[in-house]
């Protein structure tokens, strides 16, 4: 008894939609950042699942890792994104002590 590939993809899709809903609905900048991380992670699951599928089909080496390589790049992007994102939140917070994105709506310096 094994788990079908579709189950993994479905979990990935559900998490992605949850994250997207969070980004749209929540107004706290830190929470929005968290939800973006959830979306990135959901894409990771789909990438790894499809990579294992490709490896199983025996494309070349039998253990095709191209999907997993992209996951590594997603990790890099996620780390860079959260570092810069938090720096922006903290810089904005210094100007105006709030993390609510509705209150930070004018772009004047």
């Amino acid at each position: 008894m094994t788990v079908p590939l579709g189950a993994y993809i479905a979990v990935s899709a559900v998490l992605f939609f949850l994250g997207a809903a969070g980004v749209l609905v929540r107004r706290n900048a830190v929470v929005i950042l968290m939800c973006v991380e959830l979306m990135l992670n959901a894409s990771n699951l789909a990438l790894v699942a499809f990579a294992r599928r490709a490896g199983q089909l025996g494309a070349g080496s039998g253990l095709d890792q191209r999907g997993s390589v992209f996951v590594v790049f997603v990790f890099v992007i996620a780390a860079a994104e959260v570092a810069v994102g938090l720096a922006i939140i903290l810089a904005a917070y210094r100007n105006r002590p709030t993390v609510n994105v509705d209150d930070i709506h004018e772009m004047k310096g």
């Binding site: 079908p4 039998g62 997993s68």
Partner: peptide
């Protein structure tokens, strides 16, 4: 999307298990 995702019926786990460390590092 979720329903479409379930249309992939094949088992996801590979039959031949091996570490992904060396293939990953190589590529």
């Amino acid at each position: 999307v979720v329903i479409l995702a379930f249309s992939f019926k094949d088992p996801a786990t590979p039959s031949a298990r091996g570490s992904d460390l060396i293939p990953l590092a190589t590529s």
